[in-house]
């Protein structure tokens, strides 16, 4: 398995709003975050929205949920498959953390929790190994939908020029 994340000085943050976000609010928030210098990587999580009814007498019916929408973040189309309940990020330093807090204050119309901690794994798990093999890029650790196939749910590389 590969070593830990390349830079352990990075901070990991979580934005946890008191309401599940509409796609429009999530799009605005993620766009502002994506434009910020010093954001290394982030992902959204929340309750999954199925395309079709998964079980029961209506199995297979199209759901057509309003929260299941294509949003555009930093010019890239992202198909939201969850109702956005939180954003987890890795940033370079505490200044970026304060910038993100300011963005949340401005864009979220309700209260939210904002905390620093360890939210993205830094060491490869067995699942990561099985999905990506022994020489995986450590930056991709913990960045995949655990229930999804990598080929169907790729990780978006935003702002490629800064790489």
């Amino acid at each position: 398995m590969s070593d830990a994340s390349p830079n352990t000085d990075y901070l990991q943050l979580e934005i946890y709003p008191s309401r599940l976000l509409n796609p429009d609010t999530a799009e605005a928030l993620l766009n502002e975050i994506a434009m910020l210098e010093g954001v290394v990587r982030f992902f959204v999580h929340g309750p999954r929205i199925p395309q079709t009814v998964p079980y029961g007498p209506a199995t297979g019916e199209i759901v057509n949920h309003p929260a299941n929408k294509v949003i555009v973040v930093a010019g890239q189309e992202i198909d939201l498959e969850v109702s956005v309940g939180g954003v987890r990020l890795e940033v370079t330093d505490a200044d970026v953390k304060e910038n993100i807090r300011e963005i949340c204050d401005r864009l979220l119309p309700f209260s939210y929790e904002f905390r620093e901690g360890l939210f993205i794994p830094t060491i490869q798990t067995v699942t990561d190994y099985a999905k990506r093999g022994p020489d995986a890029d450590p930056m991709l650790l913990g960045m995949a939908d655990p229930k999804g196939k990598l080929s169907k749910k790729p990780i978006c590389i935003l702002n490629k020029k800064s790489e």
Binding site: R19, L20, L21, N22, P47, R48, V63, H65, A67, S83
Partner: peptide
């Protein structure tokens, strides 16, 4: 959710 309706994945 933001509109105050309990989350329902089947809408």
């Amino acid at each position: 959710p933001e509109d105050g309706l309990m989350f329902d994945m089947l809408d």
